[in-house]
Design a protein around this nucleic acid. Structure first.
Lengths: 172, 172
DNA sequence: CGATATTAGATATGGCGTATAACAATTATT
DNA sequence: AATAATTGTTATACGCCATATCTAATATCG
């Protein structure tokens, strides 16, 4: 095989052999999930995988992963920050953030600028192209990805779900 | 470093440097998340990580990961199944299921038995020890892990959350 | 001021989850 | 009987995550 590290490959890869967990009318004649269906973590993980797959599909034209999209969003909302601050906010370890930035910078979506105050740190800025891609990505995410989620869940449920997940992500 | 592949290590590792995403009163002076907080996938992933961490903590005495627990549960509810059937049901690829089973079998929690009908396949069975560990694990999960989730969310919300996640995991 | 400690970014490395290809043994198909 | 398909397995590769360590630069403290 030869898989490059692009968002489109992630989509292809995820779609390629969609290992349906419960196999709907497959050849395994439907095993009993038992207590598994009551395990929140189980459904949580499955749902997360599905949602990320859909995100990748919806934003595939722009070749952005969820993580990359979150970086661009954060850079836009928080100008003048350095790598450590952005990485920490997203829960990314600094060493792992380097390659992420390399990828974004090589596509001219953002740039590192040596700070004049502290010449150790890199101030991160969106390029014009980065801003343009982000704007298009936002539209795709809102009109295709989140729209589909809202359609499936219903607006009220969607909001309630978001609130509960945020609560779990914080107070847990 | 030298990290062995045990559940306790997973707990230690997760706890060790808990990279708090939004850094509560840290030194990053609270960056703006912006549209990120409205992204379902973002909260979904964060919540999933937290819930899995808690699962590991709660069931740490038994050294079981969520994936291993799900395998034991499934073997208990579905006797006489082979590796492919169990793996498919859990969305695990057959090649990756081999090492998982090796680990469980080396701990005498389950065993592979050559089928008499089809001598290619291995019928998976829980050992006595496997049943005992599963029983203890179920109690820990119910009384510590899920109990905490219900406490944080409230029983009604917990049920609603479970339902919505199951819906996403299926109809999405 | 100068020695020491700390910090930012980067590199190297390892573990784990996941994905595909390919093989041997066995069974199914024709 | 010859060929195809299936089961478990091995080998392999990529992505994500984690830690230690290095350097340049800054901060701290005697």
């Amino acid at each position: 095989m030869t898989v490059s590290k692009t968002a489109s490959d992630a989509v292809r890869s995820s779609r390629a052999l969609r290992r349906e967990p419960v196999d709907p009318a497959g050849d395994d004649s439907m095993l009993q999930l038992g207590e598994l269906s009551g395990l929140l973590g189980y459904s949580l993980k499955r749902a997360q995988l599905r949602v990320f797959e859909d995100f990748l599909r919806c934003v595939a034209p722009l070749q952005l992963t969820p993580a990359q999209f979150s970086v661009l969003l954060l850079l836009d909302k928080n100008p003048g920050r350095n790598q450590t601050e952005i990485a920490n906010t997203l829960g990314i370890l600094r060493p792992n953030f380097v390659a992420m930035l390399d990828a974004l910078e090589s596509r001219d979506l953002c740039a590192r600028m040596r700070s004049t105050n502290d010449r150790r740190s890199h101030i991160l800025v969106l390029t014009d192209r980065g801003r343009a891609v982000l704007a298009r990505a936002k539209k795709l995410v809102a009109n295709k990805h989140e729209a589909r989620l809202i359609e499936v869940l219903g607006p009220a449920n969607h909001a309630a779900l978001l609130e509960m997940l945020a609560k779990l992500a914080q107070e847990f």
